[in-house]
């Protein structure tokens, strides 16, 4: 049950990340990635990968921080990247 919920979330999240509404804005795109990440967390939960799940959550938080830093930085220097 969790497994298929995770599958649906992962697929929906990745579709939303690629073509979803408002993905012209990099911040919206980053948050859409989180949906797919929740799906992956559910799949880890089904497989009983406790350590992997915990590390994944911590690493996702740090990745989001790094991505947000790049986005704000690039907007401040007015780059068209």
């Amino acid at each position: 049950m969790f497994f298929y919920t995770g599958c649906i979330l992962a697929i929906l999240g990745s579709i939303a990340t690629v073509v979803g509404p408002g993905v012209k804005d990099p911040i919206v795109r980053t948050f859409n990635t989180e949906v797919a990440a929740i799906g992956l967390s559910l799949i880890f939960l089904v497989y009983n990968h406790t350590l992997a799940l915990m590390t994944f959550i911590a690493a996702t938080a740090v990745t989001t921080l790094i991505l947000l830093r790049v986005i704000t930085r690039l907007e401040e220097i007015g780059a068209d990247a």
Partner: peptide, 18 residues
């Protein structure tokens, strides 16, 4: 745009983990 490609690389990383 490069920044979008960077975010999408994250998504491919998720596929690898699955």
């Amino acid at each position: 745009k490069d920044i979008h490609i960077l975010i999408l690389t994250d998504l491919v990383g998720l596929a690898m983990l699955i």
